[in-house]
Write a protein that binds this DNA or RNA. Structure first.
Lengths: 244, 244
DNA sequence: CGGGGCGTTGAGAGGAGTCAACTCAGGTGG
DNA sequence: CCACCTGAGTTGACTCCTCTCAACGCCCCG
């Protein structure tokens, strides 16, 4: 096996959803104590996924969603003719596996980019519970809908932006997500390779590398391998728009 | 107003969901008579949307989903800096508006490409009912999930394919969707302009035009304005893959 | 009949891809 | 501890695909 189920132990209970510091990110607000307890009971197990290992692979049967507790993932689609497309990078508090509901099989690979841990959410239990708790149902629908909106934003990026605009948008997006999790908005480590960034942005790795170098030359940021320090976040945001 | 609500009249009842010829496309199977009746009651009104008119616009508050009864739509996202991206083309039996659930506001424009008619599905009624009818709940989740998978396929197209591959993929996709609705798989009329195709595929309209001309020169198909006749569907499918 | 939207085609420009050489960091094993 | 090796990243030179700009034709409609 590529990962280890962790049964909830007495110790484990201290990180029940109701006590999880990621609660605002992946749980609905406004639940009663009773409801909160039942939602807690949703999470049967947690699972550690070491760096480089898959959380699930395309074609595997779908039974659960996964909420990231710690770590960093990528999701990747591989087509029949061998093309690979990274469809997203996921971090703490985000949900993975929604693509599997439609067919009952996962439709992409999810791989840990660093040692990670996820909460396993059995989908049929979630379905049951969301029939009983309106708030949970609505929350789940919102999460799925936001996923659709996010994908549409990526389509916009891939369809209309040039290389450096895509790169700027990518970095600004990462910056915001780190920031909203309490990390620095201006300094962070990329967990993915240039090639993975390129795949996500519809570019070749050399183009990604050149783009970063160029931004460094312009004083927008400093790149040192995977470490990024953004000096002019406002200019970086402007660089997302044409004619700059 | 850009469209006209149509209250269900005695005549209207004959096209209740349970009797709709698109039933397999947009309704769950395996409902009991009682359940069927309740799902029928979901559809409060229908709405005609003349060609060119919006079904909804970005920023409008979200209250309902829409199932297409007849006609053809495009959905389009406009970014702050003025970029436009067609995110999809929708035809009979397909659902629109899922992007609005997350924020409570529509996040794209939906516009009729020909005179169309949609069933209005009040979202809070759908939510209620899907709490009572498992089958309906699961069906709705599947529909949302498939939307995500579809969007990922578009990301793959935009991220990895060259112009003519995209065009081939687009035509094959249309062909299959027409075919599954009982229309010809090899002859159909495009409802959208070259520019709209280009926006969807991340290409300029000239590139779309050239691509179609080239395919015609190669004998794959015949183009006459918006009319497409595919002569070699199998070769067109091969043209979706690299090195042809 | 004239005009505007849509589509086609050509010529030239430019941005990203391709190919290749080189550097660097990290991990492994002698 | 150092030599080695591998994968990741950078950079340069060149190619080529798509975009840009422009001219022109077609069709529909006022």
């Amino acid at each position: 096996m590529n990962s280890v189920p962790i049964p909830i132990t007495p110790q484990g209970l201290q990180i029940a959803c109701s006590a999880c510091n990621l609660r605002e990110l992946c749980m609905p607000v406004g639940l009663s104590d009773d409801e909160l307890e039942r939602v807690d009971s949703l999470i049967g197990t947690r699972r550690k996924v070491p760096r480089g290992m898959p959380l699930y692979l395309s074609g595997e049967s779908f039974t659960s969603l996964f909420a990231i507790r710690t770590g960093f993932f990528k999701t990747e689609v591989v087509s029949e003719d061998g093309r690979e497309q990274v469809t997203g990078f996921q971090m703490a508090g985000e949900l993975m596996g929604l693509d599997g509901i439609g067919t009952g099989q996962h439709n992409c690979d999810a791989r840990a980019l660093e040692d990670s841990e996820v909460c396993v959410i059995p989908f049929n239990r979630l379905s049951e519970l969301s029939r009983e708790i309106d708030t949970l149902q609505h929350h789940f629908h919102k999460v799925m809908s936001r996923e659709i909106v996010r994908d549409q934003a990526v389509m916009m990026l891939l369809g209309t932006m040039r290389a450096e605009e895509r790169l700027a948008a990518f970095l600004v997006n990462l910056s915001q997500r780190f920031s909203s999790r309490g990390y620095s908005a201006t300094e962070f480590n990329l967990r993915m390779t240039r090639e993975e960034i390129g795949s996500y942005l519809g570019l070749k790795l050399e183009t990604v590398s050149r783009g970063l170098s160029r931004m460094q030359d312009e004083g927008l940021l400093t790149v040192s391998n995977k470490n990024i320090r953004i000096h002019k976040l406002d200019e970086l945001k402007r660089a997302m728009s044409p004619r700059c």
